[in-house]
Computed example of a mutant assay.
Amino acid sequence: MPYLTLKDGLNLFYKDWGNATGQPVVFSHGWPLNADAWENQMFFLGDRGYRVIAHDRRGHGRSDQSWARNDINTWADDLHELMAHLNIKDATLVGHSTGGGEITRYTGRHGTSWVKKLVLISSITPLMLQTPVSPHGVPMSVFDSQRAAMREDRSAFFYEVPKGPFFGFNRPNATVSEGLIQNWFNQGMQASFKSTYDTIRSWETDFRQELKDLNIPVLVIHGDDDQVVPFAAGGNETIKLLKKGKMRVYHGGPHGLPSIEVDRINTDLLQFLEER
């Protein structure tokens, strides 16, 4: 399995699939998952001639578990090291949830000279935390309760999240997939306690200026029934800050769109990639 040894000595796992000379698409996963969360999209695009890359964020999946530096700036720098290592140019970066924050911070710290387009799916941008400038955001008390739930019984918490709000399986008449629930749980428990606990702090990050500064095309995809990152605070506000933004609202869509709306996400991604 391919690993990159980062400058600080940590080993980062990644997948590099598809056409080695194809247009590169780089995926950043959500919390507390890993690169496996993107398999439907990677298979779809790889089968159509794209080069598709996804990594396990430090502390997650098969990457080394770090005690410190589990923060948005470090993740952006890790991604930059990976792209440099693989000599990736003119890439489209695709981020889900926390991964959307990661790729946005990447552009703020490393610019867009290596990046052609961005796709933000159910992203934590522009400011997930409820504040006077983000009144529709998530109260700090919710983040505190999630930290408390992890300290009390992480395994129970990591079962309830996919069983309920993440995929919208707590909604009436939802078609529940026990396989998706188990897969989410397995990925979450493979990640380190410390990394997943520290990640919650990243949801307090303000990405507004980075979004305003972007001068490349950005596709924003968000479900209007997202119970994790509310649409009113997420996609609805993100699109307002972008110079070259395009919005896709998935009516009734939950947070875990890449797994619940596989065909639609794949179609929207392909269409956006093919646009000149």
Rank of each mutant, 00 (worst) to 15 (best):
L214C: 09
R248G: 05
S145A: 15
F167N: 02
R208Y: 08
L180Q: 09
I260W: 00
P162L: 08
A149F: 09
W184Y: 15
H251K: 15
V220H: 14
E204V: 05
A149Y: 03
N186C: 07
L180R: 15
F169Q: 02
D213I: 10
D213K: 07
I181Y: 05
S177Q: 11
A232N: 13
D198P: 02
V229M: 07
I239V: 07
A233Q: 05
R147E: 15
W184G: 00
D206W: 05
Y159P: 07
R248H: 14
F167L: 10
Y159R: 11
F143S: 10
Y197K: 01
Q187Y: 12
V176S: 14
T238C: 07
E204R: 12
S202F: 10
T196R: 07
Q190L: 11
N183Y: 08
F169L: 11
P139G: 13
F158R: 00
L242H: 11
F169W: 04
Y250W: 15
W203R: 14
I200T: 13
G234Q: 04
N173K: 12
P258R: 01
P258T: 14
Q227N: 09
G235P: 04
W184S: 01
L242Y: 13
S145M: 15
I221G: 01
V161L: 14
I260Q: 04
K243N: 11
Y197I: 03
P162N: 09
V161T: 01
D224S: 06
P217V: 03
L242Q: 07
F158M: 13
Q227F: 10
D226K: 04
E152Q: 11
P217L: 10
I239K: 08
S259F: 02
Q209M: 09
R171N: 11
V218L: 13
P254S: 08
G188T: 07
F167S: 01
G188E: 03
F166G: 00
E152V: 00
K194F: 14
N215I: 09
D226M: 03
N173T: 04
G234N: 00
G168P: 00
G168S: 06
L214P: 01
A233W: 00
G223P: 07
S195N: 03
F158Y: 12
F157D: 11
E152Y: 10
I260A: 05
T205G: 03
K194I: 11
P165W: 15
S192V: 11
K240Q: 12
A148V: 08
F158A: 01
M140I: 07
M150V: 07
W203G: 02
I200K: 01
S192G: 14
G235H: 02
G188P: 13
S145H: 09
V218P: 15
L241G: 06
I221W: 02
G164C: 10
K246L: 10
D213W: 10
H251E: 15
G253D: 02
H255R: 00
W184L: 02
K163A: 12
I181L: 12
K163E: 05
A174Q: 12
D226N: 06
M140H: 05
V142W: 09
G188M: 03
E204G: 13
F143W: 02
V228W: 06
P139L: 12
G234F: 02
G252F: 04
R147N: 08
T196L: 14
R154A: 06
A174H: 06
M189P: 01
A233G: 09
V138K: 01
S192T: 14
P230E: 05
V218H: 03
T199W: 14
W184R: 01
K246T: 10
